[in-house]
Nucleic acid binder design. Sequence first.
DNA 1: CAACCACGAAAAATCGATTTACCCATTTCT
DNA 2: AGAAATGGGTAAATCGATTTTTCGTGGTTG
Lengths: 353, 353
Amino acid sequence: MARRQGQQRRASIHDVASHAGVSAATVSKVMAGVTTVKSENAQRVFDAVELLGYRVDPLASDMRRAKRRIIGAIMPEFESEFFGQMVTQLESLAEQRGYTLVAASSRESEARETEILARMHDWRVAGVVLAPVRNEHGPAAAFMKANGMTGVLIDRVLSDDAFDTVSADSAAASAEVARELLGNGHRHILVIGLGEQAATVRARLDGFRATALKLAPGVRIDVVLAETDVEPLRAQLRDYFAKGERPTAVYSLFLKGTLVALSEFRRRGWHCPNDISLVGFDDAEWMQVTWPAIAAVVQPVRQIAGHAMEALFARIEGGEGPPIARLEPCKVLMRESVGPPGNGPHSGTARGT
Amino acid sequence: MARRQGQQRRASIHDVASHAGVSAATVSKVMAGVTTVKSENAQRVFDAVELLGYRVDPLASDMRRAKRRIIGAIMPEFESEFFGQMVTQLESLAEQRGYTLVAASSRESEARETEILARMHDWRVAGVVLAPVRNEHGPAAAFMKANGMTGVLIDRVLSDDAFDTVSADSAAASAEVARELLGNGHRHILVIGLGEQAATVRARLDGFRATALKLAPGVRIDVVLAETDVEPLRAQLRDYFAKGERPTAVYSLFLKGTLVALSEFRRRGWHCPNDISLVGFDDAEWMQVTWPAIAAVVQPVRQIAGHAMEALFARIEGGEGPPIARLEPCKVLMRESVGPPGNGPHSGTARGT
DNA sequence: CAACCACGAAAAATCGATTTACCCATTTCT
DNA sequence: AGAAATGGGTAAATCGATTTTTCGTGGTTG
């Protein structure tokens, strides 16, 4: 084709202009699709563009406008399926509107979160999709407010007075989990989570507790919350079981908790669902191929991503009005890890085995 | 602090200059850390910077140079632990050198891969870390060559005549898997993979086969390869077992293959390792908490990322010389999914059960 | 026939930095 | 003492686009 040598400098708008015998402004107009250019000139521009392999430099093009066609995305991590899918979705939605997504991971650190935000501010991103490490009341959101950035908060949030929020309907999903577990006959259930993620954990916990108590007022619900990290949770869980506590089901409020629960079951030689039932918030591909398959709450990634971007672009385009707080419905997949209690060796009779 | 109202326009270098009573060039020098500035002036600049909350605009700063301080990363997907960790690593390495990482996912499509590459070329990235969908001989690498881009290829590659490559030492790892399986007494082994990823699959397969045949010349090694997608592989695997083939061990050459194998085992009611043994290339967090824990080859993500970035920056800084092809050693974690053959209900005697 | 409009395109300003060329005092060297 | 080197700065050019202003031409209108 008309591709030039790899070595030489990229063609600029001026190269095209002089080749086509018009001014740079005209080339700009043609590229932007403005109709007030004589068709003959437009054609010569097209030819020159083709010949030189010219493409608009998006950064130079963005220089003049206050908001650049870049969307920032900040996730707590990239390693999990959930955030991986989220980034993929956001990326493709941004592209659809001619924006480029720049993603960064805060690695579960609020300090890094703010740092990244500052960098994105430097980049003059048009908007930010932020999945905060803790919740909407952290330093990151404060930074965005202080600097007049436009953004949307997702995932570990409920609502905010300055930003639109989009998250899974944790409470409703937890209520359904409660119905399922209670329906299976469980009356002693352990819930595990991370206290740091205050708002979400509270919603999930309250949603679960309210429904459970309504269905069976005598139900016993134990709660083991670690503050920040997974390892302390593992230790607390170990203590809990070591004390002789024998719930018949465990509900984990986040993915890593499900892994911790499973590994503790392993250590103790317990199998699901005979010895204990397990449901986790957050689904993963492997959960349906293990034996038993693990029951899980599936977060609606596409909906969250879609509505987040919708809200974000509405603000970017100047949309006013009070911030919205959206809750997307989850799906609860009851799989083999949940069954009726009382089949296992330790339940009822067992205690000191 | 001295933070201004969120509403007003960001301070530019000229605002700082006029506040400090010097020229923009002087401000630029101070920000760049040039020492030939009178300390009194430097101080006034610092004060003005503090007062106005000034930060250099990285895009404007990059305008003049040919290569911008941006590194592009293109991964086949973001959803898996491996590529998630890879992006995280690359991001932090890029940041350490004052670069920003812009990551994009090709979603296992060569067309998208080239598209993204073109976009990154438009962005004039300083370099690209590309994990190709198929291998190093695809259109993406060709595009990079044709446009004189600097880049490094990772993961599904072995070596290239134009770019540095960094990948896991598939052959050595597969040899070790062979030693383990043969050592356990397996003499009929099924290997599954994706034919599309030619170079890597060949290396893994050959490494496995060579070592296996050396250790036990009579060993039977079956191979089931699907071309592009996972679902056809599932179908082929189903056919293979339906024909009555009963290998005592399966070695999956990639993560999704391991999932497919597991789900097929489930369908047939087979348990590891009694009915069949399983090892997979690629580790994941869940593999150690399931029952049985799944044996896996762990790819050295940090080393791959580290050496890829090292090589990339060497080229960016003008390093010459023939392309290097690096192989990073893997770790093989033999877990409970592997055991000696012959305990299961179907092996030996079984056939029509 | 002069005044007015519309059209299309060129010229110039702009975005926010960096870098080059050049200027003016001192110092240093011969 | 006169020339050359050096320190410290500034104005202006530059990067690659977009956007605003200006300009010339041709056609209408009073």
